[in-house]
Design a protein around this nucleic acid. Structure first.
Lengths: 230, 230
DNA sequence: AAAAATCTGTCAATAAAGTTACAATGTTGA
DNA sequence: TCAACATTGTAACTTTATTGACAGATTTTT
């Protein structure tokens, strides 16, 4: 079980906030657990609260009626989600599902509203968060609209390396998040087969090494060049 | 020439702001004019200020090195642009060009920073703006990744009808912004020919009527159905 | 250890969209 | 008015990606 006090010490969720706000948050928030695959919130729902990821990973996605899914973002511990619906009052625009067992710090809408009403200066803490997400979303639009698949895939691999890459005794950087090609495809809005094809091509060119459920990037410069051709 | 006082009365730019802030803004902002095609700011530049569109239309876009362009948004009088770079300190992520002669209310970065430093509670006025743009950007990503071109085009036409549509003596709703098919294509990230093909198909099905530089939607319900099939 | 589930590679057939090219039409300005 | 320019329509051809199908590999579960 997770102690709220522990979160404070080990997690960047609350860093940068004034001390009294941290105290207040600790008092009024609760820790919630979500099992693998469980729904945190769903597209179209009213925003019931704010979630700070403490443990595990949350999948933000969006699905069409035909069941085609777009994987918008993997949310890691230290990130907040769900703030937009609280701030603008509109329904959730994405689905949020737990990938593996998760723990989150939950702040209900009522508590959130009360906190902001009492301390309107807290609005400014959401500004960088919103700016970051806006720039991220914009860069995705650009990617899909302007760049061919190989370049987009190369870019995504570089992002994965930067975020999840680990160095071990073997050459190159290992991406060992359990992220099937299916999910990479859903991130880029293309079919799994197209991703398999491109990854195989990268492998045949010595840029990456493929294995079941993992991927090793051995030539980042070549990925940069894939990008640069665009 | 444009009188600043006039802006206050005729433009929603400043509505919702406290009276003293409006006074302050009027005192420290300047009116700038941009000729057709002139660059307001360019991708990669430092954010030098905030722009409130007073007259004319500004084109926010993004170009790849090969010259392929994505038209992200048409900004109309009453909207602010350029706030993100001021708020997060990062370079412009888009190009802004005047479409036709424009007038904008300009607030320099220094003035902006001073204003926010003096009144941190003003941060909250940017929240709805950022939320709106974030949701908009997200809906574009979804569109490109999840929906086929006909559905995306239908959706865009409905948006154009809602925003620019005018009723006249003839049946249907006229979209009489000078918006060539080329630009519609750039909004959707596809080729002009693909747009021409689809528009012609819509016309042959009696959904729209095409003319040089304008377009009349005669069957909105059919466009909704195009969407619904997705 | 065996069975089930998940993940990956590949192929053929099909569909969607890009590219190139050119003609025709409409608008604008000298 | 007439020439320059911008916009639109269309077609052939090519490229890219989807779909559906299946086999093999790896992991997880029983």
């Amino acid at each position: 079980m997770i102690d709220k006090r522990e979160i404070l010490a080990t997690n960047p969720l609350l860093s940068g906030l004034p001390v009294d706000v941290v105290e207040e948050l600790m008092a009024v928030s609760v820790v919630k657990q979500f099992a693998d695959g469980e729904c945190v919130y769903a597209q179209g729902e009213e925003g019931d609260g704010l979630f700070g990821v403490v443990q595990g990973r949350i999948r933000l996605s969006n699905s069409s009626r035909e069941g085609k899914e777009l994987l918008v973002m993997l949310v890691e511990p230290g990130d907040w989600i769900g703030e937009v619906s609280l701030l603008d009052g509109l329904p959730r625009s994405l689905d949020a599902y737990a990938m593996g067992d998760c723990a989150v710090l939950f702040l209900s809408r009522a508590r959130f509203d009360a906190l902001l009403k009492a301390k309107p200066e807290l609005y400014q803490y959401f500004i960088p968060m919103l700016c970051r997400k806006l720039r991220l979303a914009l860069s995705y639009v650009e990617g899909v609209a302007l760049f061919p698949l190989p370049a987009r895939l190369a870019q995504r691999l570089l992002e994965l390396v930067a975020f999840y890459g680990v160095s071990d005794d073997k050459p190159g950087t290992l991406i060992d998040v359990h992220l099937p090609q299916e999910d990479i495809a859903k991130m880029l809005g293309v079919s799994r087969q197209a991703i398999s094809r491109e990854l195989k091509r990268f492998e045949s060119e010595g840029i990456i090494q493929l294995a079941y459920g993992q991927l090793r990037v051995t030539d980042e410069a070549a990925l940069q060049r894939e990008l640069g051709q665009v």
